[in-house]
Design a protein around this nucleic acid. Structure first.
Length: 481
RNA sequence: GGUGGGAUAGCUCAGUCGGUUAGAGCAUGGGAUUCAUAAACCCAAGGUCGGUGGUUCGAUUCCACUUCCCACCA
């Protein structure tokens, strides 16, 4: 049986510093990657992240900063690498779209679509907003002005290449009908169906003269690939598409793509259409996570002064605590407000008071009573059954990408452990040594499982906890905040 | 502006395919206790389920409108 799972995030566009939303996505994907690695082995997971480095905005930003574009993208790409490191995001591949190799594969993808009759040239005339740097449809205009900038767009004419996305409308709808599990959560699935039912052909190139920073259209150096067409191909390129078919065929069938609410159209409709055109299978699982909002429940914005800096947060609380909060305190799929009070409460309640404290109770008592623990074969059957029941439920949640839910249940299991130890009173002098040993050994098994199930979210602490238990060393893993 | 999604205890969220007293965790208050990070354990209080109207014997759950929030609009 092939257990290989390929996990990829969206490639962030490198026109600015990483923000907390990037952390959410990276950390979610990393958690799932770690879960699968732990469960099925390292060799069965391939985790891709990277940066999207072409397009108008980057071109312009580099000019503003007065450095070469390559320097600019190198700088920001490095920032994202550091960012991953900061939050313990352990990727197998960091993909960059500004490499020569990527250009070749994106062009190859283009040629396949072209060969299959899905790319054609069309005179395009429309309203162009300089502020947005894009064409705006007539429907979008408000009083003849751009809805975002309030300025009057210019009439502009351009000959572009178009992708025959409309050809795949029915095919994609059928795919969705037949695979209700393909998109998480349910409302993203519903939304995608609606988007797909209305898809039209899309422009997939730009005139090079306007945008010198991009990948040349094959056989037409006057045009460059539209940045989205170019970037989307990374999902297959990173696992060998166009370079290593065997590797590609091994990984692609079981793919999980993580992305944000603004990306549903691209990952769910356009990319799936591109895959269909290239005669490749659709993505197995699309996970649309939510948006991290400011503490006031509004979208973070400079003008609202509610921006949460991931760097400051990591500095203030430690990156792992921030990581834990993003996973356990903010819904996996819905928008959620980042509130420091919640972070503190959640950390104290779940990690310090519940998990960390139970760990110390058990280690301390085992040492004081000089009894054996960590003997899995001696765990009472009924107790083991109960713990394994939790374990199965939690693993099921992880497999279904329900991270928030999984972590809630891990907390429940630790909580049950605290109730158990209170009820059994292994500190009581009325218990025989054997009875005491049974209780503490049972609990050592529970703690091992809890640590294992917490590991994908808080890898460093969970490993330390496991070690402390094995060595019977009492430590304060989670200092209260 | 158009379209889609959301609004349930102080906070984070479950839930109701319409039906007697709407659930959990955290936070709060009280009790009991001390093996442990003054942690854990037990109990309690907390909500006209965003607003208005409609369908219905009955709506938090269905429908319409409305307010606020989020996203998208090649």
């Amino acid at each position: 049986m092939n257990n290989k799972t390929y996990i990829t995030t969206t490639l962030p566009y490198v026109n600015a510093e990483p923000h907390i939303g990037h952390a959410l996505e990276f950390v979610q994907a990393d958690t799932i990657a770690r879960y699968f690695r732990q469960k099925y082995g390292k060799e069965n997971v391939f985790f891709n992240v990277g940066t999207d480095e072409h397009g108008q905005k980057i071109f312009k930003k580099a000019q503003e900063e007065n450095i070469s574009i390559q320097q600019f993208v190198d700088k920001y790409s490095d920032r994202f690498k550091e960012y991953c490191k900061l939050f313990f995001v352990e990727y197998d591949n960091f993909y960059r779209t500004s490499t020569k190799e990527h250009a070749q594969i994106a062009q190859k993808f283009w040629e396949i679509c072209k060969k299959n009759g899905d790319i054609y040239k069309k005179q395009y005339s429309g309203y162009y907003c300089v502020g947005c740097e894009r064409f705006i449809t007539e429907k979008e205009l408000i009083d003849g002005k751009c809805p975002d900038h309030g300025t009057e767009p210019e009439l502009k004419e351009e000959e572009n290449y178009f992708f025959r996305l409309s050809k795949y409308r029915e095919i994609l709808l059928k795919w969705l009908e037949e695979n209700p599990e393909a998109v998480k959560p349910q409302n993203a699935y519903d939304e995608l169906k609606k988007i797909v039912s209305e898809i039209e052909d899309i422009s997939i190139s730009r005139i090079k003269e306007h945008l010198p920073w991009g990948i040349d259209v094959p056989n037409d150096p006057a045009q460059v690939l539209y940045v989205w067409f170019d970037a989307l191909t990374n999902y297959v390129a990173s696992i060998g598409f166009g370079t290593n078919e065997e590797k590609f065929n091994e990984w692609w069938p079981n793919t999980i793509q993580f992305f944000g609410p603004d990306n549903l159209r691209f990952q769910g409709a356009i990319w799936q259409g591109m895959l269909a055109s290239a005669k490749l299978p659709h993505t197995k699982k699309l996970l649309r996570h939510g948006m991290v909002l400011g503490a006031d429940g509004r979208k973070m914005a400079k003008t609202l002064g509610n921006i949460v800096s991931p760097f400051e947060q990591a500095e203030k609380y430690s990156a792992e605590i921030v990581r834990f909060y993003l996973l356990a305190g903010i819904s996996t799929f819905a928008d959620g407000a980042y509130k420091e009070d919640d972070l503190v409460n959640m950390y104290n309640a779940r990690l310090a008071n519940n998990y960390g404290n139970l760990l110390n109770r058990v280690i301390h008592l085992a040492n004081a009573k000089e009894v054996n623990i960590n003997e899995e074969q001696n765990v009472e059957r009924e107790f083991k059954q109960k713990v394994d029941e939790y374990k199965n439920e939690i693993e099921k949640a992880y497999e279904e990408l329900e991270i928030f839910l999984a972590l809630e249940k891990v907390d429940e299991l630790a909580d049950w452990g605290n109730k158990y130890i209170t009820e059994k009173e292994p500190w009581s002098k009325e218990l025989t040594k054997e009875q005491c040993q049974t209780v503490l050994n049972n609990l050592s098994y529970l703690l091992k499982i809890v640590s294992q199930l917490y590991y994908p979210a808080i890898p460093i602490s969970a490993n330390k906890a496991k070690e402390a238990l094995e060595k019977r060393e009492k430590i304060i893993l989670f200092n209260k905040l």
